[in-house]
């Protein structure tokens, strides 16, 4: 398990996503969410396997309600893949690695 991710906040989000030349998989999560904890190591694995092509951005919704509201997050984990600053895929709910890869793959 790696901890190689960027912590995104209401303040840093736009700059971080806009400036990124790589795709960013953004994970909306919280400490009290069981499924978020189970999917976290899977996201780490996926990002690591993509080499430098994909970055992981974590948004703790407890502290960043603005972002959750802006992206209409009503369930966590919600994962959104951003490319060139634009949301490309949205995945709601924890899923197995195979299924996550299947949904992300066309955009990686």
């Amino acid at each position: 398990m790696t901890n190689d991710h960027v912590t995104l906040t209401d303040e840093t989000f736009d700059e971080a996503i806009g400036a990124s030349s790589e795709a960013v998989l953004v994970d909306f999560w919280a400490e009290w969410c069981g499924p978020c904890k189970m999917v976290a190591p899977v996201l780490d694995e996926i990002v690591e396997e993509q080499g430098g092509k994909l970055k992981l951005g974590k948004i703790n919704i407890d502290d960043n309600m603005e972002l959750a509201r802006r992206f209409d997050v009503m369930s966590i984990p919600t994962m959104i893949l951003f490319k060139d600053g634009e949301p490309k895929v949205r995945i709601v709910g924890a899923k197995g690695k195979g299924q996550l890869l299947q949904e992300l793959h066309p955009h990686l």
Partner: peptide, 11 residues
Amino acid sequence: GEPSSTSDQPG
């Protein structure tokens, strides 16, 4: 099992 947001998950 695999991660999921239903009861069909590890744990």
